[in-house]
Design a protein around this nucleic acid. Structure first.
Length: 557
RNA sequence: GGCCCCUUGGUCAAGCGGUUAAGACGUAGCCCUCUCAAGGCUGAAUCAGGAGUUCAAUUCUCCUAGGGGUCACCA
């Protein structure tokens, strides 16, 4: 016993605080709700799966009046990407994933359980490691990575479980005296757990999503403190979640296999075990039959920045995520179309435990629906905000004449139940509405008109329609009289004005009223699918409408 | 390969021993219609396979298969 204490003092000469001191410094919280956290590594960007993890962690805390905090796990200095933390916090904020505590920017944090950045918690980990060494539960390991590699090769050759355990854990059997003298002589070492687990026995724990899970006990003498003096994930997780008083550890399912390590660590430290929940992975179909994790390199939708850049409303993305993973969200949404997404109660036990495929089509539908509910004011506002950041051309165009822009978005939107759903994301504005801007329209026209309706509608028919239309066009007409005039043109030129009739014998006519309308639509917008032509003309104004029709006639000659 | 997790239509997903096996997206058709849409209606399409338990199995148990994850001084 004495020897272990001597060893621990030798290994951690500058550590004077004890685990008891930490217990006092970070007392049990008085909140009765769940204490949850989101603990990403600063490796560059917010992953879509991570957005989901943070959403659920936040929800579980807020639903129970608990605490949700952000911790940065930066113990791997090699993988760290500069600027990640500010990007991460900014992106979370954009999606409304606000925290009660923890890191809030790359320089600031709030709360009494910090620091919330692991690299600043070195002393805490060392206090804990020293405790373990002093009690003979951890030891210094002098093995070099070459030695480790060669034993791994031997193990693989002999088809044995790889790793540092049993007879392969050679440093665990070195006498304490020898450890002390080797350290004194300046030999380099790391700190390992002295595992007492048995691989043939099982540990079980209750996963809040999956129920009881049984796995073999950990028997590996895993690394606690690396040669850079920072802890490994496992050790940091146990120390942090204990002293930050996390009650619910909720993370991706890739952590399930290492839970036995964590359980052993919690027990050796004498810490109470938190509750665990492991989320399924969001997958993507790769080829025909095989699935894989969303990957940043292959899938644009793996990074939440993609949704931001293309202008998906952030709530639509969250809504999609919830609908993918939580069974009754869509039913709730149907019943409560106007409630905020954060009013939905997430229930872990209702969460699906199998990995879901990311379905862009479904996201698009949700997003379309979301945008269709906005008023023209809200839409313009959102697009202005989006374009200012991501598409300057759109911003300039819309901002030049706000009244005009508002009119564009008002078409078939305000005061109507028949709202169009042309926009999936804000990025779609220009492809859909370019023709409201003369220079954009001209640009589009440089590839020619696309009057491709049917074989009987030749250039001369089109010219005739346009000429007639110009004759009768009156900008002051209301919608009904305007359409009546269109019908008259159609009738005079041999088009069928009765759709039913036309469907019965299309061969007896050049086309239908619909085709006449198409001709007018194309001459004004060069598109076959647009909102109501009458409304478009009203927004464009009389002279521009005449101008465009004249231009069409000229170009066709 | 060992261990772990998962498996209801094309996708997401209700279901928790007896159901005509919800719903959404997508898809096909029809209706509405003065254009483009929007909307409405209808249809096609699912319990991975095999044993067992049971009067009864999508539901419980076991096996097989498939998919995914994990086996670092990375998280």
């Amino acid at each position: 016993m004495e020897k272990y204490i001597e060893l621990s003092n030798l290994m951690f000469p500058n550590i004077n605080k004890t685990v008891e001191d930490l217990e006092k410094l970070y007392p049990k919280r008085s909140v009765e709700g769940a204490v949850t956290r989101f603990a990403p590594s600063p490796t560059g960007f917010l992953h879509t799966g991570a957005l989901f993890t943070s959403l659920v962690n936040k929800k579980i805390a807020s639903q129970t009046n608990g605490v949700f905090y952000l911790r940065i796990e930066d113990t791997d200095k090699k993988r760290e990407v500069e600027g990640s933390v500010s990007l991460l916090t900014a992106e979370m904020k954009r999606f409304g994933i606000t925290t009660d505590e923890g890191v809030i920017s790359d320089t600031e944090e709030v709360g009494n359980y910090g620091p919330y950045t692991q690299s600043k918690r070195e002393e805490i980990y060392k206090i804990c490691a020293k405790y373990l060494v002093a009690n003979g539960l951890a030891y210094p390991c002098f093995c070099t990575s070459e030695m480790l590699n060669s034993t791994r090769q031997i193990q693989e050759k002999n088809k044995q479980i790889p790793g540092y355990y049993g007879i392969y854990a050679r440093c665990r059997n070195i006498s304490v005296d020898e450890m002390i003298s080797r350290i004194k002589s300046g030999e380099k070492y790391i700190v390992r757990l002295k595992s007492s687990g048995n691989h043939l026995k099982k540990v079980s724990f209750v996963d809040l999503i999956r129920g009881k899970i049984e796995i073999a006990e950990n028997d590996q003498d895993i690394v606690l403190i690396k040669s850079d003096e920072l802890p490994t994930y496992h050790f940091a997780h146990v120390c942090d979640d204990h002293f930050m008083r996390t009650t619910h550890v909720m993370r991706g399912e890739e952590w399930i296999p290492s839970v036995p390590i964590h359980i052993e660590l919690f027990e050796k430290m004498g810490f109470e075990l938190p509750k665990f929940a492991h989320f399924p992975t969001i997958m993507k179909l790769d080829g025909v039959a095989s699935k894989r994790k969303l990957s940043k390199r292959k899938d644009k939708e793996a990074a939440v920045s993609y949704f931001l850049e293309s202008g998906y409303p952030t709530d639509a993305v969250l809504e999609y995520l919830l609908s993918v993973i939580n069974s009754d969200f869509e039913i709730w949404r149907a019943k409560n179309p106007d409630l905020n997404i954060f009013d939905f109660n997430v229930r872990l036990e209702k969460m699906n435990s199998s990995g879901a495929l990311f379905d862009m089509l479904k996201l698009n539908d949700i997003s379309k629906e979301y945008i269709s509910k906005l008023t023209s004011y809200e839409l313009l506002d959102n697009i202005l905000i989006w374009s200012k950041e991501f598409n300057n051309e759109v911003y300039e165009l819309l901002n030049k004449d706000l009244k005009y822009s508002l009119k564009i978005f008002g078409i078939e939107r305000d005061n109507t139940k028949k709202i169009r759903k042309d926009l999936i994301k804000y990025e779609d504005v220009m492809p859909n509405f370019f023709y409201f801007f003369n220079n954009k329209f001209e640009e589009d026209l440089s590839n020619g008109y696309n009057f491709d309706i049917n074989d009987k509608i030749t250039t001369s028919v089109i010219t005739e329609v346009l000429n007639k239309y110009l004759e009768i066009y009156n900008h002051l007409d209301d919608k009904d009289s305007w359409f009546n005039k269109v019908k008259i043109i159609a009738e005079n030129l041999g088009f069928c004005t009765d759709m039913k009739q036309y469907k019965l014998s299309p061969e007896s006519y050049i086309g239908s009223t619909a085709d006449v309308a198409s001709i007018i639509r194309i001459s004004i917008t060069n598109r076959k699918n647009t909102p109501d032509i009458y409304s478009i003309m009203q927004v464009l104004g009389e002279s521009e409408v005449k101008n465009r029709i004249n231009k069409g006639i000229l170009k066709l000659k």
